[in-house]
Design a protein around this nucleic acid. Structure first.
Length: 266
DNA sequence: ATGACTCGTACGACGAGA
């Protein structure tokens, strides 16, 4: 069983590379983030030619998440229970959740594709939103873990778990992605019994998954590990290997994130 | 290569990304 997660930075712009990568890598389950398209615009026909069933959650130009599976895709959930939103309030004073979470049952596992809010700056309302989002995610995943479901929550968490997960921690003073509050949000997920499935970097000591497009960051390996696979104990115990597919970050027209590929026993 | 971004929207910049 091969599971993968990839922030594609627009499924439309990435479609040729995505299809090529799916054919080469042959994952059974794929979590996609930043699809940047409405659910009805998701390229269902194209991925179905490769044998995948797709479920997409998107509202247009920002965010967007999707799941692909060729081992079943049932009980699809758009957004998680209690997920907060951002921006305009509705009649009862709540903002509608953005398209940042989609869950489904695939091959007996509860699989989530997640795209955490960026946070922007420490003094931004978006940073408060980010922490609230993680708190609600914790509660939603706690319920699934408590129900005894094998859970794997994959995606772009927009948090580097440790200082070793950014190319130069000193440059991140006063920035998002590295604060104690954000790292505590990840620790709260691990406290549920979720395990950080750390992938093998295929080059260099750090399993970075993101490199800014600008200033030759990828070529200098100035990256960040912000895409994570958090798996409940039963799933984590089945992990045979995991790697960052940095080949997918090379060449013409890549995403700024590389996929993580996880091989599970059976 | 001693410098170095890309997306959607919409057709010209601009907000957002991290």
């Amino acid at each position: 069983m091969r599971l993968a997660t990839w922030n594609v930075n627009s499924v439309k712009a990435r479609l040729p590379r995505l299809l090529e990568w799916l054919a080469e890598t042959a994952p059974d389950i794929v979590c996609l983030q930043e699809t940047k398209c409405a659910a009805e615009a998701f390229p269902v026909a194209e991925v179905s030619e490769l044998g995948y069933t797709a479920a997409a959650h998107g509202d247009g130009r920002w965010n967007g998440v999707a799941l692909l599976s060729r081992v079943g895709l049932a009980d699809v959930t758009l957004s998680f229970p209690g997920e907060p939103g951002f921006g305009e309030l509705d009649g009862v004073g709540a903002a509608r959740p953005e398209a940042r979470a989609i869950g489904a049952t695939c091959a007996g596992m509860r699989v989530w594709s997640l795209y955490a809010p960026n946070g922007r700056t420490l003094d931004s309302p978006h940073f408060v939103y980010k922490l609230d989002w993680f708190a609600a995610l914790r509660d939603a995943l706690a319920a699934e873990v408590a129900a005894g479901l094998p859970v794997v929550a994959c995606g772009d968490y927009n948090v580097a778990p440790t200082d070793a997960d950014v190319w130069d921690a000193s440059l991140f003073a006063g920035a998002t992605h590295v604060t104690p509050a954000e790292r505590q949000a990840l620790a709260a997920l691990r406290d549920l019994g979720l395990h950080d499935v750390v992938p093998t970097p295929m080059k260099g000591p750090h399993p970075f998954t993101y490199w800014d497009y600008r200033a030759g960051m990828f070529h200098q390996n100035k990256g960040m590990r912000i895409d994570l696979v958090y798996a409940s104990g039963d799933v984590a115990g089945r992990v045979r290997s995991a790697y960052v597919d940095r080949e997918a970050r090379k060449g013409k027209g890549p995403s700024d994130h590389a996929p993580i590929v996880v091989d599970l026993e059976a």
